[in-house]
């Protein structure tokens, strides 16, 4: 396809990591282009989250290379990943429950006054602005996020990625804990980010949702990559057999 020519935004090459003898990710290579959504599919324990956490700086790979915008990147910590404009929205919603929305949005990157003190008022004001864009119904600015619904919490996590001008967004099951309406909201946000030219890695179990949102899907099984397909070239059944059997029946036939 013409769209995916040029330098990929992210190029993960031959990534491997093992935990105590278990090969969690085994020689996996995938790439991501600007304005593209790449879905990662597979059973629990297939290695999707582990692979993505390497890119996010939460784990250090044993071997392999990460290239960002055509340059070799050295990502050792979550802070390194942020320096490459990579933002991650975790399955477990990495929010501090006891802090309010603004404190969570700016966690690790607080705005400060000239005296070096945290500027809560400005941060709350900025949070109000970004939330007005993402989730206009959001009103609970001065309560701990533990008091928020799943969708409200998710919008705080997404606001974090949007506010800091992420170029690469990783979403680990962003809709797993959400209701129908809230899932819709997240899907809208994904489309908006994509239209702005961001690259998105999306992890989900919902094959239908992935077919609707993604440009390409990569399927993993037992730590290894089964294959990467453009969504228009495959059916939902093809994807399912890749997940379950670990091979693409059409490719086999061809």
């Amino acid at each position: 396809m013409a769209k995916n020519q040029g330098t990929p935004l992210v190029d993960l090459r031959n990534i491997s990591i093992s935990f105590g003898g278990v090969q969690a990710v085994d020689d996996v290579s995938i790439d991501l282009y600007p304005g593209e959504v790449v879905g990662l599919l597979g059973h629990n324990g297939a290695g999707k989250s582990t692979l993505i956490k390497i890119l996010a700086g939460a784990y250090r790979m044993d071997s392999g290379e990460i290239w960002i915008n055509g340059e070799k990147a050295d990502i050792k910590t979550p802070a390194d990943a942020r320096d490459y404009n990579i933002e991650t929205i975790y399955q477990t919603l990495a929010l501090a429950d006891n802090l309010d929305a603004a404190a969570n949005l700016f966690l690790g990157r607080e705005l400060t006054t000239r005296l070096g003190l945290v500027d809560d008022a400005t941060m709350e004001s900025e949070t109000r602005k970004i939330m007005a864009r993402l989730n206009p119904n959001f009103q609970k600015f001065s309560v701990p996020v533990s008091a928020l619904s799943g969708g409200q919490r998710q919008s705080v996590a997404i606001a974090r990625a949007v506010y800091f001008d992420a170029k690469i967004v990783i979403m680990d099951e962003p809709t797993a804990a959400l209701g129908v309406h809230e899932t819709e909201m997240v899907a809208e946000i994904i489309k908006e980010l994509k239209a702005q030219g961001l690259g998105i890695f999306l992890i989900s179990h919902d094959t239908r949702e992935m077919m609707a949102l993604c440009d390409r899907v990569s399927v993993m099984k037992n730590g290894a990559l089964v294959g990467t397909e453009r969504v228009e070239d495959v059916t939902e059944d093809d994807i399912l057999s890749m997940i379950i059997l670990g091979k693409n029946p059409k490719r086999e036939a061809a």
Binding site: L99, A103, L107, V118
Partner: peptide
């Protein structure tokens, strides 16, 4: 101080936020 509260609220989230 903000990080003290963040670690207390969710140590994993604090680490993932680069603290």
């Amino acid at each position: 101080g903000r990080y003290v509260f963040a670690i207390g609220g969710n140590p994993e989230a604090a680490a993932l936020a680069g603290i």
